[in-house]
Computed example of a mutant assay.
Amino acid sequence: MALVDPERVRRLLVCPRCRSTLVDGANGLRCDAPGCPCRTAFPEAGRWPVLVDFEGSILDRENMSTRVGADAVGPAQRLPAPLRRIWKPANRVAARNIELLVRSLPGPAPTLLVVGGATVGNGVAAVYRDPSLQVIAFDIVPSPVTQFIADAHHIPLPTASVDAVLVQAVLEHVLDPGAVVAEIHRVLRDGGLVYAETPFLQQVHAGAHDFTRFTASGHRYLFRRFEELAAGPVAGPGTQLLWSVDHLIRGLTRSALAGRATRGLLCWLRALDQAVPATYAQDDASALYFLGRRREQEMTAQEIIAYYRGAQTSP
């Protein structure tokens, strides 16, 4: 894998509160900046340093999980191949955009940060296999494919320290997506790239840790300090209908298993995505993607209104 050695990453880490350089003491990493409340040692979960400003995070210092999270392939990948293709088809949209992102990165050995990378996301495995990339990944739980634990609202890396950021199916799980995108903008070097995928019309998943959804225009405005290179639906109305049927059956039967089984039987609904024109899909997508380049200029309110590409006419 292209993951950067954990010891090397450890030397890059900064205080999530004041962004000062950390010192490695007998009890782990700590901030030595005068007046910083993080002067006590940060906890560790096994080999993973926990760089979290607990005062402003939903994470709890006393109840931090030390259990290693899902492995690099994820639970769906353990199914037999035919069932895997039915339950979780390959994300060709992500694969295409990741290829474009990697081609657009400067060389040699650009650094790519994976935000929320406890598992290798669908369609993005190429970044972990590419020997030309240096991959740094973190999540709020320990994982074989992460080097540290952190809250994305306060990324413990120096300003302008990475060339690209991958944030797939994460922004719906953070309290303040705008703050997380601002952090992504901060850690990116000038002209750095971001690739994001975020739900639009999907039911709640991850229970209490699911907060937000975005329309295409809302998603674009979230990344308003980025130049758009590509954007659009990851999956369309057919996939969205499949989600709805799954959760309808769950509600009627009080059984998640019954919903999943129905989802498998009606997997053909995904094929309807291909029959829906792009303008309609924009309004009815299950999830959306954005690939963009960092800039300082911000979209205006007038520009985001003019940005709309859906099928509906203005009132």
Rank of each mutant, 00 (worst) to 15 (best):
I140R: 15
L100A: 11
V162M: 09
A160T: 07
Y128D: 14
R129N: 10
F138L: 07
A126E: 13
H153T: 06
T159Y: 01
F148S: 08
L133H: 13
G117S: 07
P156S: 09
S161E: 00
V120R: 02
I98Y: 08
F138H: 04
D139F: 01
V124N: 15
N122H: 11
E99I: 03
V135M: 14
G107A: 10
N97M: 01
N122Q: 11
G116T: 12
T111K: 08
L166K: 08
V141S: 04
N122A: 13
A125W: 02
L112W: 02
P156Q: 10
R96V: 05
V165S: 03
P131R: 15
D163L: 01
Y128R: 15
P158G: 11
I98W: 07
G107I: 09
R96L: 06
A125V: 09
A125F: 00
I155Q: 03
D139L: 01
I149M: 13
R103W: 07
I136D: 02
H154W: 12
D130L: 03
P158N: 04
T159V: 02
N97G: 00
F138Y: 12
G107C: 08
P106W: 12
H154R: 14
P156C: 04
V127G: 12
S104F: 08
P156E: 00
N122F: 10
Q147R: 12
I140T: 15
G121A: 13
L166P: 06
L112K: 10
V141E: 03
S161A: 00
A150T: 11
V141G: 04
I155S: 07
S161N: 00
P142N: 15
L157R: 06
S104P: 04
L133S: 14
Q134A: 15
V135I: 15
A125T: 04
V114L: 09
G121R: 13
L100K: 10
V102N: 03
A152R: 06
Q134I: 05
L157S: 02
Q147N: 12
P131F: 01
L101W: 02
N122T: 10
H153D: 05
I140L: 14
V102L: 01
T146L: 02
D139P: 14
F138K: 05
L166A: 07
L166N: 07
L100Y: 05
A118R: 11
L101R: 07
V162N: 08
L133N: 09
V124Q: 15
V165M: 00
D151Q: 07
